[in-house]
Computed example of a mutant assay.
Amino acid sequence: MNFLSVNIRGLGSDDKGTWIRKLRTANEIGFIMLQETQFASLEGFDLGKFWGQGVFDCDWVDATGRSGGLVSLWDPKRFSVSQVIKNRHFLCIRGVSNDDGKVFSVVNVYAPQRLRDKRVVWADIEGIIAQDSAFWVIGGDFNCVRDRTERRNSKFNALVSNEFNEFIDKVQMHEFSLKGRKFTYVSGNKCSRIDRMFVSWNFVNEWPNAEYRALAREESDHCPLVLKIEARNFGPKSFRFFNSWLQREGLSDLVEKACSEEVGNATAQIALMQKFRKLKASIIDWKKGWTSVEEEEEVNLKAEIRDLDEIVDDRDLTEAQLWVFDEAKNRVRELGNFKKKDMQQKSRIRWAREGG
């Protein structure tokens, strides 16, 4: 089972739902941890837009006003929950992996700012971990770093870091080498690594080659963190026709041409099937033509965003680079909106197939 953790900085935006849903699908995530929901109550809120296709279970800790808030979502076919422990600053989900029968405890953390409050949270989590020898995964926004090199242009508090490191040592947690980014939170030229994921040592022994990666920031100031211990391939997707294509230039001419071509001496039924096959192939080629341009543009923009993110690891961005970074993110978001109609159609089809 793969894990995703991200400080989402508010659940309200549909773009964030699309973002998390894509991350889950692309990385085959079985358990999601979201921090800083900023919702005082999630009763009646549609968390399905963050999960996407398929069934899921979830639990949450409400925010205090607009501060904090946690949500955990998981695949019930792969993870059977036995206990939930809630705290204002963490959410612990205990259960059994249906894949292999291993007992997991997953702790979603959004730590407080003040040191004295952190001490209470560290002690509470330590008390829970001491109760059993499950496979532990602890992820979230800890609002502190482990050493001075993990901050730039922001205040470093040695006492906070020392006590955080002592807590990690006491609970005997391990952090895999992080790939992808040096800093997980970037706001302007302020950088830090306050988001992390830890695992127990029995987890390390079981999955020593687990991949731990910080992904690109797109809808939040925080990088999504992925802990991947498996990879699955469910094969190619079938051909689908989307209503939005009817507004694309050239489709009418393509259909007319494909349907008017001769197919030789054949019965009416066979001729119709042959025309359908040719029409399908023509539509696929046509779609590739106009999507390739947009896909190339999106790839280039995301590469530019990644390059600027890497520059931030070494120095401050100039005003011009900050402008390019913001404009590139806006254009990527705009391209994503072009696909929203297709996503809505997929949702309606799924609703019709699976029921409301």
Rank of each mutant, 00 (worst) to 15 (best):
L251G: 11
F39R: 11
F167W: 13
F239G: 05
R348I: 09
Q53S: 12
N165D: 09
K275H: 12
R21I: 01
R119G: 08
K257E: 14
R315N: 07
Q131P: 00
A328H: 02
C259A: 10
I305L: 15
S105D: 05
W207Y: 13
V332N: 00
W201H: 12
G355Y: 10
S13W: 04
A268Q: 15
F239W: 13
A26S: 14
F31K: 04
L178M: 15
D124H: 08
A216M: 09
V6T: 13
D253P: 00
D141I: 05
V332C: 07
N2D: 06
A158M: 06
Q344Y: 09
A130V: 00
E230W: 04
S80D: 08
F242C: 04
K280Q: 14
F31N: 07
Q345Y: 09
G139L: 08
S13C: 12
V96H: 05
T64E: 13
R196Q: 10
F142S: 01
P112L: 05
F56P: 02
K170G: 06
Q83E: 15
G356L: 09
S133C: 10
D100V: 03
E319F: 12
R232L: 09
I20C: 05
K275R: 15
R196E: 07
Q53M: 08
I8R: 04
F90K: 04
F176Q: 05
N157Y: 08
Q247F: 13
A320Y: 04
G12C: 03
E334W: 09
L34P: 06
K228W: 06
F31M: 07
L322W: 00
E297G: 02
S177M: 12
N27Q: 12
V106R: 04
F164R: 02
V84K: 14
E206V: 07
C223L: 09
R331P: 00
E310N: 09
A123V: 01
D326P: 00
L317D: 02
S13H: 08
L254K: 03
E219M: 15
V324H: 10
L272S: 11
F198R: 02
G355V: 03
E163A: 01
I93Q: 06
D132C: 11
S282M: 14
K86F: 06
S105M: 06
Q113L: 14
L73P: 02
F198M: 10
F45H: 08
F90L: 07
I20S: 04
R114G: 01
R181N: 07
G264V: 01
T291M: 13
C223S: 15
E206R: 15
W290Q: 03
Q344G: 01
L73K: 06
K170I: 07
L178C: 07
E43M: 10
F164D: 03
E219F: 07
R213S: 11
V255Y: 07
M197T: 07
F156K: 05
E249I: 11
P236E: 10
E295I: 04
R78E: 15
G44D: 08
S133I: 01
N300D: 13
